[in-house]
Design a protein around this nucleic acid. Sequence first.
DNA 1: ATGAAAGCGCTAACAA
DNA 2: TTGTTAGCGCTTTCAT
Lengths: 337, 337
Amino acid sequence: MRVSLKDVAEHAGVSIKTVSNVVNKYQHVTPAMRARVQRSIDELGYRPNLTARHLRKGRTGIIALAVPELGNPYFAELAGAVIDAAAEHDITVLLDHTRGEREQEILVSQGFRARVIDGLILSPLELEAEDLRRRDDDVPLVLLGEREYDLPHDHIAIDNVAAARTAVRHLISRGRASIAYLGARTDSANRPAHLRLKGWREELTAAGIAAPDSLVGPVGGWNRWDGAKAMARMLDAGVRPDAVFAYNDLVAIGAMRVLHERGLRVPWDVAVVGFDDIAEGQFGAVTLTTISPDKQAIARLAVESLLRSLAGGAEPGGRALTARFRLVERESTLGRR
Amino acid sequence: MRVSLKDVAEHAGVSIKTVSNVVNKYQHVTPAMRARVQRSIDELGYRPNLTARHLRKGRTGIIALAVPELGNPYFAELAGAVIDAAAEHDITVLLDHTRGEREQEILVSQGFRARVIDGLILSPLELEAEDLRRRDDDVPLVLLGEREYDLPHDHIAIDNVAAARTAVRHLISRGRASIAYLGARTDSANRPAHLRLKGWREELTAAGIAAPDSLVGPVGGWNRWDGAKAMARMLDAGVRPDAVFAYNDLVAIGAMRVLHERGLRVPWDVAVVGFDDIAEGQFGAVTLTTISPDKQAIARLAVESLLRSLAGGAEPGGRALTARFRLVERESTLGRR
DNA sequence: ATGAAAGCGCTAACAA
DNA sequence: TTGTTAGCGCTTTCAT
């Protein structure tokens, strides 16, 4: 069995409390005593039992991060950022993925997957406001991403509409006139992709360019294959845009593959802009212009927001925190000035 | 404050033990009593405190997975697989990354980042056997990946030498004669990439093809940029292979980008084989032929191995468990039959 | 079938 | 400055 405070205390011939004081770096311990206890600690190889400490303190020092899919580099990179941000506060991160399924998201939000956490950062896709309203878990929750709920939980995102408009504006400035949006979800107005679609429409309208439905490509998901299928479907329908703004980089990459297969050259025939700035976009035959959200900022805001809830305890939250983004220009929108 | 067993017991007018029996689905409880207690549980919204349960049982139900970099899709995908495999056993996964730094790997192996775990799955890069030998942590440890240590910890990997030979054999069968290896680490013979380098050399030798050092490209890391730099360096040195076997897909993708920039066409001028089978390799202008390790199997073996150590307690382990791999042929090695 | 009570390892209030 | 003790919420003998 592992050595406990008691073992150390006996070994050093002092009380448990004294050992605890040394372990917790309590100020008022004589150097001699500290040294003596420390020797016993080293000798016995004592390591504090965090479970016990946490039971006592009511905190575990663990937060959970639940994202749709770790296979999506954006979320993987974001997870890395959250782990780092949490580490700065001596907090460890328990990672979970929901596959973007509503059921899974509900389970996670209820804490059924991990009931040992101080707080939860959730990036929902399908979750509905009612699911959250029904939630009877007192664990602080912070929401991430494009979905917006009118609920007492802090929410962190970039300004998706503004970002989408920036992307579309960039395409317009490059002389593109027929700009498609790839990644709409038609099933619900409240779904993600909604805001980016809105930004696309707004910017086109502002520029006096038509935004017909034929240029809106629906997808079944937000992975490379979905992007490929959506692009193929649009081309098969006889629609031939000279630019594509994709919901995210993965969709953009899938679309670029199909364009390549059809002999359409990026950026000459079709310019492409993605969203997320995943590392993958910096490589390939054609590097990808994209909207780059400040992932570090998002991670930091999320962790700090959670910490705030933990400390404050009382106030409900419900703040909307915004991280910055920028447009990163690469090869996929070069040329054809 | 949260409701505890005691609250429920008082509310239902029974003893704590009875409530505990109901919560834990103990057999010998009268249906009437069960219903009565259940009603109180529902009414008060009781949720068991896992920390307390774990303190009592000595287990937390959490294992940690530490990989070098979540930004590497291979590890992200593997992490997803581990989370799923663990979920089947009602175990949650705490994720950590080490950046492949020895110091971080030591810390993690010592459990300094997360001292609430039942077991640890570690994918080391720089960690040395002595670091592990010095480790004074009784938490079961399972090792993942190419590094091999002669230590009492289970180790899970694919047969890296055989996999590398398969890749090289494939290139030879495609008529390639000057096959480079990209991703050597020259600093130590024990480092990862060693086995794959060995397989490259063995297969070439077996086929009666020279394996000069000029065809071995050293890298500083195993990301896309490292691959790009290594490829550029080799070409700058006047070496012009007609095939490249890369340490992993990321290195291969970086190399392909440089080949593209230099006007060398893949696969016509240079064929490329990667390692890991990350989703990214299925897209891009040229899809990537690669060695595909069975990630699900690796994850399952790792989790089960850990569970075994937890149950058995006693026996030291030290088993070498091997998962399968297969060659996935894509465009990067097509043509030039 | 149900209850009483000890104790997992730790922290914190209080005492000395 | 150091020691004593109660108790965090739970499981688990041992009684009843």
